[in-house]
Amino acid sequence: MPDSRPVVLIPSYNTGPILPSTVAAALAQGVPVRVVIDGSTDGSPDLLQPLLSDPRLKVTRLEKNAGKGSAVLRGTRDALAEGFTHVLCMDADGQHPAEMIPKYFELSHQHPQAAVFGRPVFDASAPALRVNGRKVSNFWANLETMGWGIDDSLFGMRLYPAAELIEVFESTCFARRFDFDPEVAVRLAWRGVPILNLPTPVRYLSREEGGVSQFRYLRDNALLTWMHTRLFLGFLVRLPWLALRGENPLHPFSPPHP
């Protein structure tokens, strides 16, 4: 059975002062951290300078904004080159709790063949439109994978087997921007990668707290609609094989929905 040598990967685009706080919180867990600055124009690399004395931190800068998926692709390739086997993606905007990192790493050590997906536990800060709207994407993702076990198709805190993630990227020219999270989830399921779902608190920071969002309602929902149209056609092609392959072998190990 393969082992697990995970690293935290944080893609960032114009997240401002919240970025060093997010990175510092991850480093406080005693783990290696890699940041990919995705063409930011807000001085993000300078904001991280005080943290670069920590040998566990490395920062890569992309000159032009290429999208979250592209930043993760670059970071995952670099992680593999360094000898890491898994990448735990975290958003740079402070929504994902760094104190959950050890739990993701522990599950990865127990099940190194698996991807560990966060199942968001929302509090009162979560906009109702975002909470309810994601149910549409979740419905389609579970239809397209015949219920393989994707509890949330959009939540960005996930631990991926790095080699499998690279193979997914190489299988499509898509999944490079906001469509990254749901598309790679579906394609990993198509490949038969076992998925575990870990309940994870999520907090939407206010502007006063430094919260930022790159989500654009019309643009990104149009992108998701096009994505699920493509994936549904891919599902139809794969339907006979998906119907015969059985269930996600790790489905019983995920905590049940409340």
Rank of each mutant, 00 (worst) to 15 (best):
S70P: 09
E144M: 11
K103T: 15
S44W: 04
A81Y: 00
F215Y: 09
A126Q: 02
Y13E: 07
S153C: 14
G69F: 05
D38P: 11
E82Q: 10
D38H: 10
F139S: 13
L143E: 14
L47Q: 14
A114H: 06
A114Q: 08
I150C: 04
E183A: 07
A25P: 05
P256T: 06
K135N: 14
F122A: 13
P256H: 06
G234Y: 11
P182F: 02
S206Y: 03
L205M: 10
H111V: 04
L80H: 00
A26K: 01
S108D: 12
P127R: 02
F139A: 14
P102Q: 05
D42L: 09
P240Q: 15
N138Y: 05
A26V: 01
F105S: 04
Y204I: 08
N138V: 05
P194E: 08
F180D: 06
Y204S: 10
T85R: 01
S213C: 03
Y217F: 15
A92E: 07
T229M: 11
H96Y: 10
L224D: 00
G133F: 04
E82W: 00
V7K: 00
E106V: 02
R5G: 00
T60N: 08
F232P: 08
G246M: 15
V35F: 01
N221Y: 10
M90Y: 05
S53R: 15
K103Q: 12
V116F: 07
D38G: 12
D54P: 07
L198C: 06
Q95P: 01
L9Q: 01
E167P: 02
V8D: 01
R216I: 05
S125V: 07
A124F: 11
A79W: 00
V168E: 06
G39E: 15
F174V: 03
P258M: 07
G67H: 03
G43S: 15
A66R: 14
K64E: 11
D151K: 13
P97C: 13
P256L: 06
P249A: 08
E170R: 09
F215S: 01
I18F: 02
A92M: 06
E247G: 14
S4Q: 09
N142Y: 07
I101D: 03
L107M: 12
P252F: 04
E208V: 08
V116A: 07
E63P: 01
K64I: 09
G149H: 03
L188K: 03
A175G: 07
F155A: 06
A222R: 14
A162W: 00
T60F: 15
F174D: 11
N138I: 06
S53F: 10
A243H: 07
E209V: 11
P256D: 15
V33F: 00
V7H: 00
D152I: 03
V33D: 00
A26E: 01
Y160G: 02
G147A: 13
T22Q: 12
N65T: 09
M90S: 04
M146G: 08
G149C: 04
P258T: 09
D3M: 07
T15I: 05
H109N: 12
L62C: 13
V36P: 07
Y13P: 02
K68C: 07
Q29H: 03
L218K: 09
I37L: 13
V237W: 13
Q113F: 05
A26S: 11
I101T: 04
M1R: 15
L154T: 10
